[in-house]
Design a protein around this nucleic acid. Structure first.
Lengths: 335, 335
DNA sequence: CTGAAAGCGCTAACAT
DNA sequence: ATGTTAGCGCTTTCAG
């Protein structure tokens, strides 16, 4: 059963397809089409359940009403939550979100962006990875709205929504210090992305401000592509090798989960002897015994700002430059 | 900067657009186009970085190389993991997955399916909700491949991949009984969907087989749309009202999370006095103190089977009927 | 072996 | 106030 086209409607209503198209696009008034024709056409549309072919429409108008969203990993709750919020908001404005996970892999990110391009998405929301600068520049040259979130790319100037990573790590580390911790470890990811680097800097600065020497042997960098099991393995070894350690800051939520597993395995007790702060709030940290303190990123605000920026760019034909760099503040939640 | 079209390539290579199109679609050999022309065209394509316009291609061929995936909630790790796996596999076959969350809302599901239709996705993978039978039938009439997963819809005959829910709940309940529990509660969701009903039946049957009377006051049905906080509230009240309860089975992962929060709040101890089994395995249950036993659904197998079914239907022009109903077995993991 | 041309379903300038 | 028509970029039949 072939789907009906605008032509069928026109025939059935004995009007031209133009008339139908105008009615379909809410231009009936503007074009002063008579009430009775409008009614007739609308009735027929409803009756036979006609749905415009979005593909044809896109080909004609050049826009797909779709926004491409590139996250690091959609099964990471931080990104999943943001994606959900963005999707809901975009949906209300008639946009569909098309998302994919880059896994922080430059090749994959490039290939996904190219997929988005061939599918002609109208705009891009991206948690960037290093090395994709060239293709991003092409997008911008193409006059496609691009908004970064979670991190930016030095050397590419476009809208962005980030959380102050330096300050998040700084405050967390400072809290450890104020609690009297002396040997504060940092577990982070071995990846040259802005937000990770900034968290590292925040950690170092807090130590410096407290006149505590930075000791590189207290910093563990885990390969992003390492499996959960291997990560836990590495952390177990690390914890065993540094018995003097009395506090740790995990730079990402998944590292914190692995870290907690390692700690559990070691039978190490979190509390007076040993303190933990994780990045990103999540059920798992609230439910843990004892509860885990976290650096909470304002997920809803991130989503709000991202979608506002992108919709603005979309509607203004990116004429307006305005404030398109947003920096939000994280919140240290002590438990 | 307007993107280049096939016409530009043709002009630059001084051949017709037909030739370019054949080369683009790997039909050069078949059409016996000369090696040198092929080489020339390919070089030009590479040089100017031409990307075919997928929209135009779709309009012409009638297929979009896109599969619509409807889950309950993409931020639920069970669905997120399946979506990731399906996406990876589909990507390798040249398909893009377009996903959305129904939130078990019939209206929303219908509207999303219609969005998929106007966007002409080639096939549908759906975790169905009651009430969408009519639109699903339309899809099937349209000859679109449809595969259900996680649950099916009575009265709609199409491919499906489900896990034996009856048996999952039965085994979990039986385990409680064998451990000597007498007052086993069930916390489930107030929703008429197949997998939930079957879990309920499994619970009842296990009790019956052990000659334990079913007591409706031990069953709590939580409204799906209730917030996390309210759910915890309700469960706290329930736990307080039933001090004799010595075991509980949670019918979904998110209910288990809420339940564990309620238990934590009450200071109730999980162990000898009180046993818990959750549905779906997840970090959070492994990391909990004490660790939580679970009914683990074979996520990878679900994804594999779903994608196989859909790709088969897609390539066979749904001629083949074959075994298109798969039922997998869950695994009880005792911790 | 390659080219011309029709047409997928829709929008919108231009006619009337 | 409504109709005619070109054309978005591509695939594919039919001709040569």
């Amino acid at each position: 059963m072939k789907p009906l086209s605008i032509k069928d409607i026109a025939k059935k209503a004995s009007v031209s397809i133009t008339t139908v198209s105008f009615i379909l696009n809410g231009k009936a008034r503007e074009k002063r089409i008579s009430e009775e024709v409008i009614k007739k056409v609308e009735d027929i549309i409803k009756e036979i359940g006609y749905k415009p072919n979005q593909i044809a429409r896109s080909l004609r108008t050049g826009n797909t009403k779709t926004i491409g969203l590139l996250v690091e990993d959609i099964s990471n709750p931080f990104f999943a939550s943001i994606a959900r919020l963005i999707e809901d908001k975009a949906y209300k404005k008639g946009y569909k979100i098309s998302y994919s996970s880059t896994e922080n892999d430059m090749e994959k990110a490039n290939s996904l962006i190219n997929m988005f391009r061939t599918r002609k998405v109208d705009a891009y929301i991206i948690a960037p990875v290093a090395g994709i600068e060239p293709v991003i520049r092409e997008l911008i040259d193409d006059r496609k709205p691009v908004v970064f979130f979670d991190r930016t790319l030095a050397g590419v100037s476009t809208g962005s929504v980030v959380v102050d990573n330096f300050s998040g790590a700084y405050e967390a580390t400072k809290h450890h210090i104020l609690e009297g911790r002396k040997n504060i470890a940092l577990v982070t990811v071995d990846m040259d992305v802005e937000q990770i680097n900034e968290r590292f800097e925040g950690y170092k600065k807090a130590l410096k401000d407290a006149k505590i020497d930075f000791r590189s042997e207290l910093v563990t960098k885990i390969d992003f592509s390492l499996s959960r099991e291997s990560t836990v393995r590495e952390l177990v070894t690390m914890f065993e090798a540094r018995p003097e350690m009395d506090a740790v800051l995990f730079a990402t939520n998944y590292l914190a989960v692995s870290g907690l597993m390692a700690i559990k395995e070691l039978g190490k007790e979190i509390g007076k002897q040993f303190a933990v702060i994780a990045y990103d709030d999540h059920d798992i940290f609230r439910l843990h015994t004892p509860q885990i303190s976290v650096v909470d990123q304002p997920i809803e605000q991130i989503a709000d700002n991202v979608i506002d920026l992108i919709l603005n760019k979309l509607s203004s034909g990116d004429k307006l430059k305005e404030i398109d760099k947003v920096k939000l503040m994280p919140k240290l939640i002590i438990r």
